[in-house]
Nucleic acid binder design. Structure first.
Lengths: 182, 182
DNA sequence: CACAACATGTAAGATGTTACATGATTGA
DNA sequence: TCAATCATGTAACATCTTACATGTTGTG
């Protein structure tokens, strides 16, 4: 359960309320790690019960009160132990419907792939451009991780884009490596 | 639920038993889409109950009988509708503990990252080489999707490797873009 | 004799999505 | 007035992992 550490990590900076955690998320890690309220609120509850965070209710801007969560000593220790332990693994997961679709497409059927490939190519290209301009917009003083996260996204989007371009090439001619018999 | 379509798609070729489906998986899609028995068997059961597949028991090589599953008309139709509908999306997910670790690493702390970065770099490089040689080992007659899946893995592993190399570079000098004040 | 391969499965829990429910306030 | 933003949550379901349980056969 790493959502736990995401939350503890955010709360290390300062107390946050739920809605705000989601905002923070969506604007930083969120591109990479989407979180829904349906997951966030129950997790905050659990971390409260386990004593990793404590809750104070303060009036919200509108009607409903905010529940502000503060990191406790226990939470702090837990986070730091997680962080100290280090040796984290990257794992690239390429598990999507398109890949599955591709897996079940026969050579003779390759043309049917093209509309989906083109559509995905558009989406990926546009996303890549967005991240690229965000990277360029970063000042020199921008924190290391911000730059690094954007780069990571850009590199993988680029990989995906180039791959899709290759699929288009491959689907135009039957034998990918040139020379054909006959 | 796409494990459903993975199974239906495999059974289109010929009947399979559970253990065999897992084998097939591990040797093709498996690099990309790991499946555990804990997920596979219950899903086969569900698809039997819903009438997408039917089960016949045949003696196994050793002691326990095999349960061979065959695609029914319903299953076939369902798969084909899924396939016809097309417009599948790629989605790259970059949600791993290392990235989270990075997210919580301060600029001043960057050096602490290096051992993990190097370790991951080794792993990723080695994986990349394995897939590369598998790609080269493919004959010219190899099906389109096999080549494409391997390429996809290779491209993303390469993206990851280059990214890790950049992290190493970035962590050696504070300002990434050259000119420093002072 | 121990261990890998063959072959089935269950149970518990972690993780994540989607839709629903509530209700005030602000701005177009 | 209508949609968006603020702010909380629940419930149902889907997905996936891990550990356990069972038992034979072949191989070193």
């Amino acid at each position: 359960m790493s959502l736990k550490y995401v939350i503890l990590g955010l709360l290390r900076q300062r107390p946050h309320y739920g809605y705000e955690i989601k905002q923070q998320f969506d604007h930083s890690l969120g591109e990479i790690w989407p979180v829904s309220y349906g997951q966030l609120y129950p997790t905050l509850r659990k971390l409260s019960v386990s004593g990793h965070i404590s809750m104070q209710t303060v009036p919200g801007k509108k009607a409903i009160d905010k529940n502000v969560y503060t990191l406790t000593d226990k939470g702090k220790t837990d986070f730091e132990q997680w962080y100290e332990k280090g040796v984290k693994k990257t794992q690239i997961s390429i598990k999507d419907e398109f890949t599955l679709f591709l897996f079940f497409t026969q050579d003779s059927d390759m043309v049917r792939l093209l509309p989906a490939v083109r559509k995905n190519h558009d989406i990926v290209s546009r996303q890549e451009a967005v991240f690229q301009s965000r990277l360029e917009a970063l000042g020199e003083g921008a924190p290391f991780f911000q730059r690094a996260l954007l780069k990571k996204m850009i590199f993988h989007l680029e990989a995906e884009r180039i791959w899709l371009e290759e699929i288009i090439m491959m689907s135009k001619r039957p034998a990918p490596q040139g020379v054909q018999r006959g």
